[in-house]
Structure formats: C-alpha cells, structure tokens
Design a protein around this nucleic acid. Structure first.
Lengths: 217, 217, 217, 217
DNA sequence: GATGAATGAGCATTCATTCAT
DNA sequence: GATGAATGAATGCTCATTCAT
C-alpha cells in the first residue's frame, strides 16, 4: 500500500527511491499527455499506457486522480518558483523585480512548454470532487501552497507604490492583468510553436513599465 | 430528423420557430450548467435534465455534442460582437477604438457572466473529435468565423501605428496581451463575484493607453 | 433517461409497459443470480449477462445498484405481504393469527425459495452507501416500508396478551425468536432442498403455541 | 514462505510465537473490521491497514483470503465451544443440557459481540472459490470441524426423547429452530446494543422448555 | 519475517450516440 | 418534434494475489 501523505513539499518525504522515480515518471507522462490531448482526455488509463505500466500502478502511487493532478501542479509550481523567486530577489527596485518576474516567468514558460500548457489546462478544466477548481480548493485549505502565494505579483506593485517608484495604481488589478497577460504566452505558444515568447516577455516588460511607473512632469 | 447544417450564422437559417426556441433554450441551459459544474461535468444528459427535456431531444436538435458546443460559442460571440463592434465603429481614433474595445468587452463580460465563464471554460477544455481546440479548428475551416476575427484587437494596434497615434509596437503581441488581460476579468469574476469588472476595464484602458501611445518628448 | 422515482409502491407508478417488463425481468434475474452465487458475487455485469442485456441497460432502469437491491427487496416483501396479511386477517384469535402467520410465511418460503434465499442474503450482506444494512436504512427513512412493519409478529404477541390468550411474555423477544426461527427454514432449505419446510412450519406452530399459551392449572 | 497447513486445530501447530501472535492480531483486527463495515467491505487491504501492517503481511500469514476467513471462523468456534461444551457436560438431564446450551451460548454472544456479528456475517456472505458457503464446504471436507458438530443441539433433543424427558418431537427441526432463534440475539444486538441478550436467553429457555417437555396429563 | 511494488480482473457508474416509434 | 430504450466504450477505482528483495 502506498499513495498516502500527498504533500508535494519536503524532498520526497520518506519515499523510497523506486517510488520517487515512478511518481516522477508518471507525472512526466501525464504532463506530456495533457499536452497532447488535453486534460479532459487524459484518463488514468491513457497516462498509464503512455508510462508503459498497468493502470493500477498509477493508482498505487497516487491515491486517486486528484492526488495525481495535485502532484503535477505542485511539481510544476515548485520548479517555476525555483527559477523565479531568486531572480526576483536579486533585484532591489520594484521595477527591477517586476521585470525579473516577467522575464523569468516567460523564460520558464519558453523552456517548459509542456508543463505550462498542462498547468493552464488543468487550472481551467480540473475540478475537485467537491466541484472546486484547484486554486479555489487550495485557498480553502489554509495551507495556501506557499509557492502559489509567492508567485502572485501583487506584492511587487504594492512595493512600487510604497517606494514611490510606481504611480498610484490598484495593485490587485495590475497583478491580474499581468498574470493573465503572461498566460497569453502559453495560449499563443500552444497554437504557434514558433511564437517568440521571450520577445513577448520583453514587450510585457515595456507595457507594464510604461503602465506603472510614475510619470515625469 | 433535424440537426444538420450546423452553422451559427444566418438568423435561424430556415428553422421553424419551435426549433429556434428549443435550440435557444438548450443552449441557455448548457451555458448555465457549464457555469456551475464546469465543462468537463456538463454532459448531454445533465444539460437535458436541466432543460427539462429528454436527453435525445438535445441530440435531435444538435447532431452531436460538438455541434451543441459550436452553437453555444457561436451564440455568445455573436452577442458579444453585436455590442462591441458598434461601440468600436463609433470611435475614429485608434486610441478611441482601443478604449471602446476594452470598455465594451468588459461591459459585456460584466453583464453576461455565465456566458463569459462558459466560453473561457469551453475554449480551454473542449476538443473536437480530431483533438483540436475550437479556435484551432475554426482557423482550419477556411470560414474563420467572421465574429472571432472581427473581435481580434490586432487591427486596432495596426491602425494606431499607421496613423502615428501609437508608438512603434508589435501589434500581434499587444493584441495577445490585451485579449488575455481582459480574460483575467472573467477568471477573477468567477472566483470573486464582487470583483469590480468595470473598474478593471478602466484600469486596462489606462494601462494600454500608457503602453501604446506615442511618447511626448 | 429513466431510473428515478425509486419507490416500490403504487402499481408501476407511471412506468411504461416496456419499462415494467424490463425491470421485472432484471429483478428476476438478479434474484436467481444471488441465489446461485451469493449476493457478494452478484455484480451488475453478471446480472445483465444473465438477463441477456447490456450492463448499461440495468443501470438505465435502476439509478444504481442500491436502487436495484431496494427494488428486489421491495418486490419480495410486497409479494410476501400479499399472501400473509390476508391469511392473518382471516383469523380472529391471537393463536389463530400466530398459526396463520407461521403457516403462510412458510408456505411463501416453500413456494418462493429463490426469493427467500435472496432476501436473507441481501439482508445480511448488503450495505447502503452510508454503510447501513437495508432494514437499518429503512427504519431511518421515516417511511418504514409498511410491508416490513406489518410483517413483524410482535403485534400478535401483544394482542394475545391483551386478550388473555397468552401467558405473560415479553412480546418483542418472542417476535425475534419467531422471526429468526422462521428464517431457519430458509437457511436449511438452501442447504437441503428436500427439507420439509411445511412440516417445519407445523412444528413451529406447535412450539410457539406451547410456548405462548396461558397454562391451564 | 509461511501460510500453509491451514487447519485451526492443534495449539498453534508448529508455529513460532511471533507467528502465532501476528495471526491472532490479524484475526482480531479482521473481526473488528467485519463488525464495523460488514464482510463485503472487509478487504485484505483494510484489514492490514487496521492491523498496522503491510497488506502482504496478511497474505504471508494466510495463504489467501479464504484461509484467513477459515482461521477467523475456527478461532471463534473454538472459543465458543470452550465455554459451551463444559457447561453442557455439567448437566445430566436433557432439559438441563438444553438450558445450559442456550444460556452458555447467549452468555458467549453477549460477551463476544464482535465475534458473533462477524461469524453471522461471514456465514451468510462468504463463499469459497468453488462458490460454497463455509458450512457447506466444511461438511464436504470429511473433517467436519469437530467444534461445529458438537455445537449442534440436535443431540440434546434426541437425548431428551430417549430418556423420555421430552415429548415426541422432530429433533432436527427443533435444533434448527433453536439455533436460528439464538442467532436472533446476534441480529438484534447488532441493531440495538442495549438489547438484553441474557434475558432473551432466559426467554428462550422458557420457550424451548415449554415446547419440548413431556406434557403432564 | 516482512514488505514495497506491481498487476490484471473486476467493480459500479457515466458517457455520447443510435434508432424505432 | 419528441422520446424511451438500448448500447458499447470508457471512466476512476478496488480487489486478491504474486514476487523479488
């Protein structure tokens, strides 16, 4: 019997080597599959088939499909945060952090396309057994998935206002606009693999710089 | 036997009054349901149940589920275009059209929340039998769904550059950023019904005005 | 879409002829199967197979397995009550009703063996989704399944005491002893088809007559 | 490799202390679980979980689930016989043995409720791989499980007739009625924990005394 | 002694779809 | 126009069992 605990934190949390390897393999195959056929068509059976294991193996390692989905999302968020948080921390000004946020996010998207497509699909398609989307469920669970919280750019806009770098602006709204504009790269990339995501990132840096910085008289 | 033709164009295209009414009723119920439980859980059976008709009635009026989905999306796009296109046409400058595009789009989202939630869900979740998303399928079908095309803001940015109103900018990228930033309102609204979508619209007007207009020296 | 309502009362309650026929056929096959392999092995698939229909047909007519089980049990109880209640009503004395209860019950068991075996198996094996046995669930449902209540012999023992026919006795305990002693015929019959259930009934009449009637000094 | 032999006789038959302890622990947990969720829901996995061991440990100690079930039933029967047989042997008359049989059986039921519930559930629900109930399988196996045989009250009724204590009566039928009436206490107790099983036993003593003893003219 | 890993068969249930009426 | 009936494929999940370590 395996497939309990659930958490995505704590490097492997007591799992054996074999288990960690299998879990990683299954998560990887699931991401690829979601990518190719969409989350709606990514059944446990097809995931198992793609991983070359029996369907029951998947459910041996993940208590149910929801756990698998959470593992996928957790994995990707952690990977993303690992890239983005240091990049942001390296900057001191709000404008610097903002640009670092955008650039590191788009670099991640560009180099982790399957993961990015998968997470966008899962976030809109997947519902927990209680009918909630994953982010809604997460916010109801007290443990607000530190990674998700830290990846919300609202803090940057608030900082910029406190320091006077930015014009007076509604930080939460700019955060929403920025986050979804970034998602636009994922959307576009999944339709056009030749889309230049990094250039798009630079354009977003320009847009949000122009849109947020204090106007010189 | 009914349920052929399929197209969403032409006011009811030869359909009887009863038929048009039934189709509208079913489409309406489907939108409500997608809204409540997500597209993944919106089966033909549940849609029929909600409409108070037999499951087979739904498939009498729509050849298959894909046709129903196309009807839903077509319906909403037409409704949206009916509001947005005149608003844009009433403006002469690119900046005016841009503001009108954003404001009319957010007004539509704000007053047609179920439709907006549904379309966002369908666009990411639904795949045709060949495995394509609806917009991908539409662009492959030569008939590129006039409405969809007209609602792409890329033309506005191109216009603004031709007239010199806007700074030199990559129009397609700004179009992506704008479209997805607008979608951000739908996302947020579906999590927080008290979100002020119109104020968000005004902020987007500000952001994209700052971000696109020619800088005065 | 079928398979709603649920109740076993009201002769066919609005169902079409075809539906009533299919339901009856499926219930019949289920009884036979429970009889042969035990309730634990009586899966929906095997029931359908035995009925010569697709598995989904069973679940088209019964919302889920629990509904099917309830239909089976309800059916048998109604049939049993139809035989037993008039037999008891025809007697005036408590002793007469008691003998009629036992004889009609054993006559029913003897002539409806598969049904009797099935109901005994279901009553001990089956649990509702909440983990309750069927009789426990029924008593929690306010609607205490009139048939079940009327088939409880406790009233007879109470009557006999009020009329003075019977010795002072704890009616509920005698009712339990009687009901389970009658079940003994089902148990025995399922092991030895040659067991003389009617003679056993006569012996039970003797036992419970001797055990309950007022002792002459 | 362990888990062969199978028999429930012989005090632990060559097993080590650890092994006997583990088997006893698993059997105990299985009884508790059957008690709580019913035999149908008592999977090997859940039994192992409750015992705090790996699923494979259960199947290391018992060749398969059937062996575990046999061990459970054997255990309980032995325990029951240990109480009941001496109680009966202490009496000389058939009436005395009869009363002792009933009283000791109900005392056992009252003080070993989980065991009693479990055995009733298993006896009706469980089928061997050949589709037989456990008692049917036992009688086909020549080795008729001494305990089971000795716990059949038919001998008492036969004795009572030979000695003239009892009226002419069909001993096997009274045995069936008595055994199942006793089971009635288990049934009732599992629905109502406050049921007075010992008083019920006294009532059964009365009933079967009245029902079997030779009538004085 | 004990267990982690794997597996295939089976489970109840849901699905979009077909078709005769 | 509408529907009841039926269906096969697929869904997520549980099961007892095997086996190498």
């Amino acid at each position: 019997m395996r497939s309990s605990e659930g958490g995505s934190s704590g490097a492997g949390g007591g799992r054996t080597f074999t288990e960690r390897a299998r879990r990683a393999q299954i998560v990887g195959c699931a991401i690829e599959l979601v990518n190719e056929v969409g989350f709606g068509q990514a059944s446990v059976a097809r995931i198992a088939q793609r991983a070359g294991v029996a369907k029951s193996v998947v459910l041996y390692h993940f208590a149910n499909k929801e756990e698998l989905v959470r593992a996928i999302v957790g994995d990707i968020f952690v990977t993303g945060a690992t890239v983005m948080l240091p990049a942001m921390a390296a900057e001191e000004t709000a404008a610097g952090k903002l640009a670092a946020y955008i650039r590191s996010n788009l670099a991640f998207i560009n180099s982790h396309r399957p993961e990015s497509f998968a997470i966008l699909d899962i976030m809109t398609s997947f519902r927990t057994q209680e009918g909630l989307r994953l982010d809604e469920a997460a916010s109801r669970e007290a443990r607000p998935t530190a990674e998700m919280a830290n990846l919300d750019p609202v803090g940057i806009f608030e900082l910029g206002q406190r320091t006077g770098e930015f014009r007076p602006l509604p930080a939460p709204m700019l955060a929403i606009a920025l986050r979804t504009a970034i998602d636009g790269a994922v959307w576009q990339l999944s339709r056009d693999p030749d889309f230049d995501a990094l250039a798009y990132g630079e354009e977003l840096v320009t847009i949000f710089d122009l849109a947020s910085r204090r106007q010189e008289p």
